[in-house]
Design a protein around this nucleic acid. Sequence first.
DNA 1: TTGTACGCGTTATCAA
DNA 2: TTGATAACGCGTACAA
Lengths: 333, 333
Amino acid sequence: MKKIAAELGVSAMTVSRALNNHDNVDENTKKTIVETAKKMGYTPNRVAKSLVSSRTYTIGVVIPEISHAFFAQVVSGIENVTYEKDYQLLLTNSAEKFERENKALETLLAQQVDGILVSCSEETTDFSLLKRIIDTGKPLVFFDRCVEGIGASTVSVDDRNGSYNMTQHMIDHGYKTFAYLSGPQISTGKERLEGFRNALKDNKLDIKEEWIVESGFQEKGGYEAMKKILELPGDKMPRAVLAVNDPAAIGAIEAIEEFGYSIPDDIAITGFSDDIRARLLKCPLTTVYQPSVSIGRKAAEKLIKVIENKDEPAENIDLLTDLVIRQSCGCNK
Amino acid sequence: MKKIAAELGVSAMTVSRALNNHDNVDENTKKTIVETAKKMGYTPNRVAKSLVSSRTYTIGVVIPEISHAFFAQVVSGIENVTYEKDYQLLLTNSAEKFERENKALETLLAQQVDGILVSCSEETTDFSLLKRIIDTGKPLVFFDRCVEGIGASTVSVDDRNGSYNMTQHMIDHGYKTFAYLSGPQISTGKERLEGFRNALKDNKLDIKEEWIVESGFQEKGGYEAMKKILELPGDKMPRAVLAVNDPAAIGAIEAIEEFGYSIPDDIAITGFSDDIRARLLKCPLTTVYQPSVSIGRKAAEKLIKVIENKDEPAENIDLLTDLVIRQSCGCNK
DNA sequence: TTGTACGCGTTATCAA
DNA sequence: TTGATAACGCGTACAA
């Protein structure tokens, strides 16, 4: 800006005004300034701008695992909104680790992001840092793996209902013995398991606790949890398996096939999330559709509202899920 | 920092030195300062730091489509490195649009990122902005969809070879008539088509130009291109189809099935990228494995080298591909 | 319509 | 070992 000013024999201030298209600048000088700015390849320095305005137009995102299809889609939804609203996206990855999540949060704060979007790691059970951040008034919105009741808005699907409905669907089709591959018992994972339990209870079916195995959110955990169930002593096997999400279900399917069982005839299985792979599986996976892109969009929209209006009230936004009935549940015949 | 200084009756400068662990500060004062900083919940302001140092420890990434599995994995590789080296990731999405790519680039520049990682959009044929950025000395590295020869390093796989090898594999197994679903004729897309052409030429096989159809990089384009081929007048059909990437192949498979043909018995097909879905398809897709995470890692590593040493020479890094033979090529019997 | 002074939070530099 | 000052690039508030 100084150089442009010197070049044209005006003050830096006039250049600033011209470039920001203020109306108290002579039309002619404005034109010349804009032109020479372009000619000299001027790029405004947002860092300096941010320092004075204490606004960075930057949003920090903490994702448990970027390479997971679901989160990639959520990010895509977030990006849609930030693009429209002229915010930038600072992406961090907790890699499902509590430590990394905290470090990421600290860094985002240091970067002076205008707001933060968080989906908790698998390990996160201590919310003190999150609470402290919210208490300072820094805009923060949870998505998918949310912490409710600590003052921040949350955006997720109605996990309990989705899980309940899927379980009910299976019961309606005559299944009576169920295994459940559960996620960690926080937010999403907890609610889905509750939905499962409630459905069984409401239908007066027994819950066999040793068939409820924690698998985590990933393929490997699903594989191992399923194996554990299949290796249980005794000759009984669950007739149907509900998994906390599609990656876990996909891992479990591998285990089931390794044991030589066929899906859905020996064991029926369902997932949750409608992963990009679900419909393409050899035996297409029945699952609960989660509007991943919308989750990202809603979360980003809410966050920006909070950023731009500190009085925006906190709310828990639940998006609707849908059952996607394919072959793996065996109800399609 | 000022508040801490006031609290302790020292100057802001001493606080700065203590917090940055300089050695010319009294050990005791240093300790007290660090403690009260923690107690007061001090978070350093990187924006201010950046303004004076003209370093942001931020890397901008321009991705053609975040929600694509391949790119999500590349981003994951990039993030691994930026995490290790303490850089932050500013993610932008060109949505395969030239305009958006340019806007993203401008924004990243304005954000004063220390360097930029770019994979070009499908539409990008005008490299003038990219060239201008490189010429200003701003560190920039291309990955996957690269522009060679304009002064920036590139990281991609040896597309020509990968494509050649796949074609040769098919020829070795007796296939003689090929269709090719091509990407746009830049970088990756161009090289893969060349590999295909070269292999046919070297084997003295005819190339039927009307069976070379531009599909773009996505499912929809693959579907439509394949349909076009199958609807061609005359009763001849290609015996095998090579697609520029897996998404295009997956789209094409849908078209092939819609026409009632079976894979690989009526038409064999292969992809490129080893998408997360490839192995799970009803007829698992034979494809060329691209080390996506490594591409991200290498690109980020190279970029950081350039950032930290302006004399780092530009180079074209080619990672190796591998054929992944599954069922869709029909060579597995 | 244009210009000057100052401040944003931090650090380099020089002086004490 | 510590402090004062200036500077990074920009915008607000005021004066001309």
